[in-house]
């Protein structure tokens, strides 16, 4: 019996819907956790990098060394493909360190450190974009560098880098597909399995494409709403008790 395109789609959804659902779940889990942890890595490392160099010579050298390590991390993980990193880390850890992660856990770790490398640079740009006066005002009321970062600079930075973080999240949703090389059962891996079961490449991957698209467009909308909420309104209506100050001439 020959099926039409739509019949194939409905056949796939009916028989393999739960597979796709599970794959989507794993993709979402890895990309969400990966983005979240990468975001935190970015905040932490970029904040360390933004610290002014101390006057003490030993502390200064130590600080420079830490900055150097962060630079190495960023360059190495940005400079190599995630697919290669996945293979090297997953099999490397098994072979040389005897650590046996489940593929999903390994996937989360790999996406996290990879995203972190990009986010360090994104956060650095975000911190640089905050007016110097904000840090000066924080210091002028006696805040330490870290207090100023936590209460003043980073909250503003986070707002400014939300669009870039959203980008990173979307890229992660799509790029987790490369984790199929270490047999993570994410959406792409599942799609390949379904294709293998029914020998219909085109229809199966159309289903995957639609799912990927729905995921990314939903996340874009959610983050846009979040930005709007943080921004608040432009106008403010004061409580009625406030009188305008009239300058009285002597």
């Amino acid at each position: 019996m020959e099926r039409t395109f739509l019949e194939w789609i409905s056949y796939i959804l009916q028989n393999y819907g739960s597979w796709f659902l599970r794959g989507t779940g794993v993709t979402l889990l890895i990309s969400f956790l990966g983005t979240a942890v990468g975001f935190l890595i970015g905040l932490a490392f970029a904040s360390i990098r933004s610290m002014p160099l101390p006057h003490n010579r030993i502390k200064k050298q130590l600080m420079k060394f830490v900055n150097f390590l962060i630079t190495c991390y960023v360059e190495i993980f940005r400079g190599t493909p995630m697919m290669v990193q996945a293979i090297v880390m997953y099999f490397g850890m098994q072979e040389f360190m005897g650590i046996n992660f489940s593929p999903t856990v390994a996937g989360i770790i790999i996406v996290s450190v990879n995203t972190g490398a990009y986010m360090v640079e994104v956060v650095r740009g975000g911190i640089d974009s905050i007016d110097m006066g904000q840090m000066e005002a924080a210091k002028s009321i006696g805040m330490s560098h870290w207090q100023a970062m936590i209460y003043v600079i980073l909250p503003q930075t986070i707002r400014n880098i939300l669009p870039a973080t959203c980008n990173e999240f979307i890229i992660n949703i799509k790029d987790t597909s490369v984790l199929n090389v270490i047999s993570v059962t994410e959406l792409f891996f599942v799609t390949k399995s379904v294709k293998g079961a029914i020998y219909r490449t085109y229809e199966t991957f159309i289903v995957a494409a639609v799912i990927y698209f729905i995921l990314t467009i939903t996340i874009t909308r959610i983050i846009r709403q979040l930005e709007k909420r943080i921004d608040g309104t432009k106008k403010f209506t004061p409580a009625s008790s406030t009188m305008p100050i009239v300058f009285v001439k002597k």
Partner: peptide
């Protein structure tokens, strides 16, 4: 230094209110 700064306040030309608060 931080303790000293908390005793010597500063008002800036560009106001520098904390924009997130």
């Amino acid at each position: 230094v931080n303790q000293y700064r908390s005793k010597v306040g500063m008002v800036f030309q560009q106001f520098n209110l904390f924009n997130n608060l």
